[in-house]
């Protein structure tokens, strides 16, 4: 954890924007109970360790301070397994068209 991450590394920093209980009045109750959090990526300005308050330069050249939470953050969105509830639809609708002589 104390390992130093080199300057210039692509990282993500965290900031607490509004703490729980200090949210805008129009926000529903469940959201009131949690903070407004912010995550921003950029290049590390000085060597730092995970968890440190540090500074980044974003791709537009903006400097931003925040807690270092990720190094070279991954894109993790994916398809995942196919959805069984969708897998029969193609054959069902083709069967309807076949019955009308529209498909072989």
């Amino acid at each position: 954890m104390t390992e130093l991450i080199v300057k210039g590394t692509w990282v993500e920093v965290y900031n607490l924007v509004l703490p729980a209980g200090e949210r805008a009045p129009q926000v529903p109750e469940d959201t009131q109970k949690v903070p407004l959090e912010m995550r921003t990526k950029g290049f590390l300005v000085k060597p730092a360790s995970l968890g440190d308050e540090t500074e980044i330069v974003t791709t537009v050249g903006r400097r931003l301070r925040g807690k270092l939470i990720e190094v070279n953050p991954a894109y993790t969105h994916q398809f995942g397994p196919p959805t069984p509830e969708l897998s029969a639809i193609g054959e069902e609708v083709r069967a309807i068209l076949r019955a009308r002589g529209q498909l072989k």
Partner: peptide, 26 residues
């Protein structure tokens, strides 16, 4: 998440927030 990736692919800075209309303040 896919939009984050796409924006970053075009060289944009993406500021990601948790849920709430105070996004406007940021």
């Amino acid at each position: 998440a896919e939009k984050t990736r796409a924006c970053e692919a075009y060289g944009a800075e993406v500021i990601r927030l948790s849920v709430g209309p105070e996004l406007f303040y940021v």
